[in-house]
């Protein structure tokens, strides 16, 4: 535990000293403030009488068929996908440097000369990075959830709980960033490849159509294989919306709430972390 605490302290102090922590939370706060000021609901006797979004009136049906609960659910499911992208991008940007910076000449010797196994050192740093990213996810989603509760008095915990799905994606991508970091010792390459993976995996949601469009069989096989191996960033984005929407989720989105995208994504992350540990263990400095 002492090693883990030491790494958490190191990671947090570095984030604070390099303004990463401030920028990370400042950006999130700006988003929260925009959200808080953008939504104005007129609730009379517990019923929605009117609503304004970014200062513009939202047209309400004359028969008052939209309940306050429905409107909150709509807001939250819409924002959840934005938060999914925002949290993931900020997390990778704030943590991808953790391994390359530790591996710098003159610094790595200081860490490896301690009585700590390399795997324990790397995993402690991974957990420390995840805590940094996770605290921002909780801050961002938690704040917006509280603002919605404060403005509408509607308590909808699914929105906050959805942060677990976002954390799964961040944990997977961070494992990949660690693997690239261990191999290349480059922060820039870690960030670029991780973002590249995120977008490439997004495109693979249409793997059936892409495979059907390619001319050779092996190309189709390759695309389908990559789809199953790589994290399901698109499906998990949809899963966030579906989870927040609950029973109100459209059937197309609700269908992604199966174990497969979660399990294959988690498996990819675990394999990346195992490979990163193996490479770090074997690496000569």
């Amino acid at each position: 535990m002492k090693v883990l605490y030491a790494n958490i302290e190191d990671v947090m102090r570095e984030a604070a000293a390099r303004w990463t922590l401030l920028a990370y939370f400042l950006l999130s706060t700006v988003f929260i403030l925009i959200f808080a000021s953008a939504i104005n609901l007129d609730i009379v006797d517990g019923a929605l009488a009117g609503a304004k979004l970014f200062g513009k009136d939202v047209t309400m049906p004359a028969d008052h068929s939209i309940s306050i609960e429905k409107l909150v659910l709509g807001f939250e499911s819409g924002f959840s996908v934005v938060l999914y992208f925002l949290c993931t991008f900020l997390a990778i940007f704030a943590t991808a440097h953790l391994v390359p910076r530790m591996q710098e000449k003159g610094t790595i010797d200081l860490y490896l000369s301690r009585p700590v196994s390399r795997i324990k050192l790397l995993l402690s740093r991974y957990v420390a990075g995840l805590i940094l990213a996770g605290s921002n996810v909780v801050y961002l989603l938690g704040s917006i959830w509280l603002i919605v509760m404060w403005k509408t008095h509607v308590v909808h915990p699914r929105f906050f709980v959805a942060s677990a799905v976002i954390l799964l994606v961040i944990a997977t991508l961070l494992a990949f960033a660690f693997l690239v970091g261990v191999v290349t010792s480059s922060t820039a390459v870690s960030i670029m490849t991780t973002y590249g993976l995120f977008f490439f995996a997004l495109m693979l949601v249409g793997h059936d159509r892409i495979a059907a469009a390619v001319s050779k069989e092996w190309q189709a096989w390759l695309i389908n294989t990559m789809y199953w191996i790589l994290p399901k960033t698109a499906e998990l984005g949809q899963a966030v919306i579906a989870f927040v929407s609950g029973e109100q989720a459209p059937e197309r989105l609700a269908s992604v709430l199966t174990p497969a995208p979660f399990l294959t994504t988690a498996a990819f992350g675990l394999v990346c972390l195992a490979l990163a540990s193996w490479c770090f263990q074997r690496k000569e400095f």
Binding site: E14, E104, T107, L110, S113, P115
Partner: peptide, 18 residues
């Protein structure tokens, strides 16, 4: 084996933010 070893590398870089 490193439990009781102290090491000072040449050109060490203690993180400047600490």
């Amino acid at each position: 084996s490193r439990r009781r070893v102290g090491y000072l590398p040449e050109g060490h870089k203690i993180p400047g933010y600490l």
